[in-house]
Simulated assay, not measured.
Amino acid sequence: MIDAALRLAVIVGSVRDGRLGPTVAAWLAGQATARPNLDVDVIDLADAPLGAAGPSMSVPEPVRRALGELTPRLAAADAFVVVTPEYNHSDPAALKNAIDWHNEQFHAKPVAFVSYGGISGGLRAVEHLRAVFAELHAVTTRDTISFHRAWECFDGNGQPKDPEGPAMAAETLLDQVSWWAQVLGDAKATTPYIA
Rank of each mutant, 00 (worst) to 15 (best):
G121N: 05
R142P: 06
T141N: 00
T144E: 08
R142W: 06
E152A: 11
A150E: 07
E152Y: 00
V139S: 09
L136W: 10
C153Q: 14
R124F: 05
A131N: 13
A134I: 10
I119A: 13
V139Q: 00
E127R: 12
F154P: 03
R149I: 01
L136D: 12
A138G: 02
D155G: 11
A131L: 15
F147P: 00
F147M: 07
V126W: 02
T141Y: 00
W151P: 03
G118W: 00
L123Q: 11
A138D: 01
R142C: 09
D155H: 09
R124I: 03
E127L: 14
R130A: 03
F147I: 04
L136E: 09
S120H: 12
L123T: 12
A138E: 02
H128I: 03
T141F: 06
S120V: 13
A138F: 04
G118M: 09
A150P: 08
R124D: 05
R130H: 07
F133P: 01
H128W: 09
F133E: 04
V139C: 02
D155F: 02
H148M: 10
T144D: 08
E135R: 11
L136R: 15
L129T: 04
A134G: 13
H128G: 01
V126K: 02
A125S: 14
V139Y: 05
I119L: 03
V132M: 08
E152R: 13
R142F: 13
R130T: 02
V139K: 07
T140H: 06
G118T: 03
I145N: 01
E152K: 12
V132T: 15
A150Y: 02
V126F: 07
A131R: 15
W151Y: 12
F133W: 07
H128M: 12
F133N: 01
A125D: 04
H148D: 05
F154C: 08
G122S: 00
S146V: 08
S146Y: 06
V126I: 14
E135I: 07
L136A: 11
A131S: 14
L136K: 15
T140N: 03
L123R: 11
S146W: 08
A125H: 05
H128N: 15
V126R: 06
I145T: 04
S146N: 05
T141I: 13
I145H: 00
F154H: 04
F154K: 10
